[in-house]
Design a protein around this nucleic acid. Structure first.
Ligand code: FES
Ligand code: FES
Lengths: 143, 143
DNA sequence: GATATTTAAGATAAGTTTGTCCTTTATAAA
DNA sequence: TTTATAAAGGACAAACTTATCTTAAATATC
């Protein structure tokens, strides 16, 4: 469904969102430990998220990553879009060049609903929302 | 969502199911033309489907592939399972070792419904069903 | 200003999926 | 029995994803 890069991105962003906003940032090491991901690969993914302004970073001592107030409202949809592209939300299930009503693949009618179900869910779910489940121990980021 | 191999497999199986049952079989060349897939790669995929008895093949002149009566009732679910495995139907969306109620990932509750929606759809859709849409020109296998 | 820390960036490697090519095997027809 | 045909199987190559390593840039603290 999602690439590994995308799964790491989502879990990392949720993890960072669980941390209190303030003067401290969280380091790469902490993040990849919290979500059980390879450190250097995670760094690459975070770089993309920083470039897209979904995440902010500061270099040097006491540096690290943080997510500002507004960015905590980011929808999971946006993260998938940035890391995997939106093929999953708009592409044809069976590989036709483009998904369309005029030239539907074999499963178009049945699949459309599922894709919309997924897109709707991801569009209406924010980092903030997901962070709550982690904070109160209902949901988990690793293992 | 699905691998290219899996998309080719589904389209190929649907195409073969559109052909009348009888003495003639359809060749690899015809199939890969009908679904616009690389010939040699398609051959590999068909080999797997033959091994799994979802498809039958005969070598030599007038040889080729065919799908018997019963096999036309094969659900798309089964084809995905054989080619891609059932990670998509049972695995965790965010990469946890296993999906479970006891140790749910951040999106587990919201994702479960989508996964079940997908699994249900694929489980209740057969080659036969899809072949009809192709036969009457409502749906398409390529471009 | 020097040093230590931490992310950014670039190069490279490993692994997986996708795709091709060549040889072997089975089989129908001449 | 020979020949032609078509799938099966194995080896290999290309492309993409995942992962690592090294160096550069930024910045806080001494
Ligand atoms: S055309 Fe295939 S999903 Fe719409
Ligand atoms: S635990 Fe992640 S989808 Fe169930």
């Amino acid at each position: 469904m999602f690439s590994k890069a995308c799964k790491y991105a989502i879990n990392a962003m949720i993890y960072i969102s669980t941390l209190p906003q303030g003067n401290d940032r969280v380091g790469l090491k902490d993040i990849s430990q919290a979500i059980n991901s390879p450190e250097a690969f995670t760094a690459k993914i975070l770089q993309i998220l920083v470039k897209e302004n979904l995440l902010s970073s500061i270099k040097g001592p006491n540096g690290g990553f943080e997510i500002h107030e507004d960015a905590r409202k980011t929808q999971l949809y946006r993260i998938v879009q940035v890391i995997d592209g939106d093929q999953i939300f708009t592409g044809c299930a069976l590989g036709l060049e483009k998904c369309s009503e005029d030239h539907p693949c074999a499963v178009h009618n049945k699949f459309k609903a599922i894709r919309e179900h997924l897109a709707g869910m991801m569009m209406t779910t924010s980092l903030e929302d997901m962070a709550r489940g982690i904070q109160n121990g209902t949901n988990f980021l690793k293992i």
